[in-house]
Amino acid sequence: MDIFDRYAPFIQDYIYSHDWHSLRAVQNAAGDAIFHTNKNVLLCASTASGKTEAAFFPILTLLEEDPPASVGVLYIAPLKALINDQYERLTEICEESDIVVTRWHGDAPATAKRKLLKKPRGILQITPESLEALMLRKHMEIPSLFHDLRFIVIDELAADFLNVGSLRGSIIPKFDGGKEVWRLSMEHFYNQAPQAGEGEDEEEVHALEAPSDKAPFASDPGMGYIFEHTRGRKCLIFTNSREECESVCQNLRQYCEANHEPDRFLIHHGNN
């Protein structure tokens, strides 16, 4: 049976509504492994290859067909930023189903946590630190939370660790991802130095208008380039340090504010 035909109707509707022409190789391979074996599954694919959908489309299908009596999926990720990103994606996927997605970390809403404790269900997204704290501080709640747990999804894990203590064995689906085409471009930006005797201070020298004419804002041309070229796209912005990551993100958020656009920049690093 084709993997798409095996998906729950709300998953198929999601795929149609997002104009997918076909499933990716990793999604077909993951669906075959999850639907047709009871082994642990490790998915290895490049960034933005569709691994999240590859894992969750079959998992959500199985949850829809046989709803668990507690939290059905425990999703563990090392970073709050990663959980927040996946939360938005999974919530959109599950919009037409009865599957609830709850995120649990230090910055997550307390109201959603209380609702989950009162009525455990759906998907719980959590960091390792928060999971440890949950088990220590809410140990009396653990049986009701996880007594019908079906799947544990761990982001960023090696096969050797996955096999430890498990009698199921593990499978790493093999697939041909096809030929990938990479396009590379490079842009250079220079800060204008003050002319001798002009006496401008540093802020005046580097003051430039924002790329949009909606609202002027002081910044450098590199920030303006990033702001314009990330609009309407999924992008990763790399910096040289965590401190610079904070600064760049703040500058880009100010660009959003100055141009009356919603904030679209999230920090993703080891301190978050």
Score class of each variant (00 low, 15 high):
residue 16 Y to D: 13
residue 17 S to N: 15
residue 18 H to R: 14
residue 19 D to I: 01
residue 19 D to S: 00
residue 20 W to A: 05
residue 21 H to N: 08
residue 24 R to P: 00
residue 25 A to P: 01
residue 28 N to K: 11
residue 28 N to E: 15
residue 29 A to H: 03
residue 30 A to G: 11
residue 31 G to Y: 01
residue 31 G to V: 02
residue 32 D to K: 11
residue 33 A to R: 00
residue 34 I to R: 00
residue 35 F to T: 05
residue 36 H to E: 14
residue 37 T to F: 04
residue 39 K to D: 07
residue 39 K to E: 09
residue 40 N to Q: 12
residue 41 V to D: 00
residue 42 L to G: 02
residue 43 L to P: 01
residue 44 C to L: 13
residue 53 E to I: 04
residue 54 A to R: 03
residue 57 F to P: 01
residue 61 T to E: 01
residue 63 L to G: 08
residue 63 L to F: 04
residue 64 E to W: 04
residue 66 D to M: 05
residue 68 P to K: 10
residue 71 V to M: 07
residue 73 V to T: 13
residue 75 Y to Q: 06
residue 77 A to I: 03
residue 77 A to Q: 04
residue 77 A to H: 02
residue 78 P to G: 09
residue 79 L to K: 07
residue 82 L to Q: 06
residue 85 D to F: 00
residue 85 D to H: 09
residue 86 Q to Y: 01
residue 90 L to S: 02
residue 92 E to L: 12
residue 92 E to I: 01
residue 92 E to S: 10
residue 94 C to I: 01
residue 94 C to Q: 05
residue 100 V to C: 05
residue 100 V to M: 09
residue 101 V to C: 09
residue 102 T to A: 06
residue 102 T to D: 06
residue 103 R to S: 15
residue 103 R to D: 04
residue 104 W to M: 11
residue 105 H to R: 07
residue 106 G to E: 09
residue 107 D to W: 05
residue 111 T to V: 14
residue 112 A to N: 11
residue 112 A to R: 13
residue 112 A to I: 04
residue 114 R to Q: 14
residue 116 L to V: 03
residue 116 L to M: 15
residue 116 L to T: 06
residue 117 L to V: 08
residue 118 K to Q: 13
residue 119 K to P: 02
residue 120 P to I: 12
residue 122 G to C: 04
residue 123 I to Q: 03
residue 124 L to Y: 00
residue 128 P to V: 11
residue 129 E to Q: 14
residue 130 S to L: 04
residue 131 L to N: 08
residue 133 A to I: 07
residue 135 M to R: 15
residue 136 L to T: 14
residue 136 L to Q: 13
residue 137 R to E: 15
residue 137 R to D: 15
residue 137 R to M: 10
residue 139 H to W: 13
residue 139 H to G: 02
residue 140 M to V: 11
residue 140 M to L: 12
residue 142 I to N: 05
residue 143 P to S: 09
residue 145 L to D: 05
residue 145 L to C: 11
residue 145 L to G: 04
residue 145 L to N: 11
residue 146 F to M: 09
residue 146 F to I: 12
residue 147 H to Y: 13
residue 147 H to M: 03
residue 148 D to Q: 08
residue 148 D to A: 12
residue 149 L to M: 09
residue 151 F to A: 05
residue 155 D to Q: 05
residue 155 D to S: 14
residue 156 E to I: 14
residue 157 L to M: 14
residue 158 A to N: 14
